[in-house]
Computed example of a mutant assay.
Amino acid sequence: MSTNGTRTPAALVLEDGRVFRGAAYGARGTALGEAVFCTGMTGYQETLTDPSYHRQIVVQTAPQIGNTGWNDEDDESARIWVSGYVVRDPARTPSNWRSKRSLDDELANQGVVGISEIDTRTLTRHLREQGAMRAGVFSGDALRADEDMLAEVRASPAMKGADLAGEVSTKQPYVVAAQGERRFRVAALDLGIKSNTPRQLAARGIEVHVLPSSSSLEDLLAVGPDGVFLSNGPGDPATTAHATELTKAVLQREIPLFGICFGNQILGRALGLGTYKMRYGHRGVNIPVIDVATGRVAITAQNHGFALEGEPGQTFESPFGAAQISHYCPNDNTVEGVRCSDVPAFSVQYHPEAAAGPHDAAPLFDEFVGLMEKTAGKAG
């Protein structure tokens, strides 16, 4: 329901024909994308502005959303990237000292079509059982006969096979200066990077050169990097031939490399592992991960619908020497990390930079610094 008190009917139409009816929230019109659910109880602003959610309709499992409004500090990028938004009980009035406007108003300002007042618990159970699927949110003049809306949903592109990183990547390189004395210089390949990632690196004395996803090896080497970072991002990792080949070239030169989320899948593919689409993925801020080497459990923030093939603790030979599946999720044994033994490279599927928390995995940035310290003067 709009914060101005008026109610406009809306519908969420799933690819399998299921229809949920509610009230318009945010902009009016049509939103098409893959319906996925996010279990985070906080951090909705970071979720909405995460480029990894490009072309997805995000369902919030937490029933009350919008309580803290919208501020001008917590965005993870320059815009909202979700294609549609689904909530149960939107806040009538935001209450937070940093709030500048309501979530409803910000969604409307940025043209994001949402829906509220639906049973998100039933919807989430449906997506768990049937899997993430194409969907559409329709409101206002876009609301019409169910069969017409369903036909539009089924004509929309699927997430499997979608090459989206180039759509969210920066068009021009830019630099985030190190805080204090510069210790290292890192080339970060922007596949959908979140703002907090360069901040985390900069806080450790790293000058971050953020490069477009289309960057060549020559572009990357021109930075004179002490290390290379592969960011998170949207889409099917099977479409990332360019990024995978670039990663192989970095591994051949034994430049320290660290990847997260989409970057984990790209490193895995460069090492010879396959990827697959999960039934409904991992999205939220409460997902456990076990480090095979230590047995330690970290509670992590995640956002991925694809994963690497492999078994927890599995060792394998790659074109760059021995490697191991280093982390896994105990909920379903999904691969959550890869580590190389013979070249300085590792990656994780989760988000150690998660601004909304949890922060269990933040020391992984320090591990990346440690790799660069060990290979200082040898890169290139």
Score class of each variant (00 low, 15 high):
residue 5 G to L: 07
residue 8 T to Y: 01
residue 10 A to R: 05
residue 11 A to Q: 09
residue 13 V to E: 02
residue 23 A to I: 10
residue 25 Y to T: 05
residue 26 G to E: 06
residue 31 A to C: 09
residue 31 A to N: 10
residue 33 G to H: 05
residue 38 C to D: 15
residue 39 T to I: 14
residue 47 T to P: 00
residue 52 S to V: 15
residue 55 R to P: 01
residue 67 N to Q: 14
residue 68 T to K: 10
residue 69 G to K: 02
residue 72 D to Q: 14
residue 75 D to E: 09
residue 77 S to V: 07
residue 78 A to D: 15
residue 81 W to T: 01
residue 84 G to R: 14
residue 89 D to E: 14
residue 91 A to W: 06
residue 92 R to S: 09
residue 95 S to F: 14
residue 96 N to M: 01
residue 100 K to H: 05
residue 104 D to R: 01
residue 105 D to L: 10
residue 106 E to M: 13
residue 108 A to R: 15
residue 111 G to I: 09
residue 112 V to I: 15
residue 113 V to G: 03
residue 115 I to N: 03
residue 124 T to W: 08
residue 126 H to S: 06
residue 127 L to M: 12
residue 127 L to A: 07
residue 128 R to W: 05
residue 129 E to P: 00
residue 130 Q to W: 11
residue 130 Q to V: 13
residue 139 S to V: 11
residue 144 R to S: 15
residue 145 A to E: 15
residue 145 A to I: 00
residue 150 L to Q: 05
residue 156 S to T: 09
residue 158 A to T: 14
residue 158 A to F: 06
residue 169 S to K: 06
residue 173 P to E: 08
residue 179 Q to L: 06
residue 181 E to H: 11
residue 185 R to L: 03
residue 185 R to N: 00
residue 186 V to M: 03
residue 190 D to Y: 10
residue 195 S to P: 00
residue 197 T to H: 00
residue 200 Q to Y: 13
residue 205 G to M: 05
residue 212 P to K: 03
residue 218 E to I: 04
residue 224 G to D: 05
residue 226 D to F: 02
residue 228 V to H: 02
residue 232 N to F: 02
residue 237 P to M: 10
residue 241 A to Y: 12
residue 245 E to T: 15
residue 249 A to F: 03
residue 255 I to Y: 08
residue 255 I to M: 06
residue 259 G to K: 02
residue 260 I to M: 04
residue 261 C to S: 06
residue 265 Q to H: 09
residue 267 L to K: 11
residue 268 G to Y: 07
residue 280 Y to V: 03
residue 283 R to C: 05
residue 287 I to H: 14
residue 292 V to T: 12
residue 302 Q to W: 09
residue 303 N to W: 04
residue 304 H to E: 07
residue 315 T to A: 08
residue 323 A to Q: 08
residue 326 S to P: 04
residue 334 T to G: 01
residue 351 H to A: 06
residue 354 A to E: 04
residue 355 A to V: 14
residue 361 A to H: 02
residue 361 A to R: 00
residue 366 D to N: 10
residue 367 E to V: 15
residue 375 T to E: 09
residue 376 A to P: 00
residue 380 G to W: 13
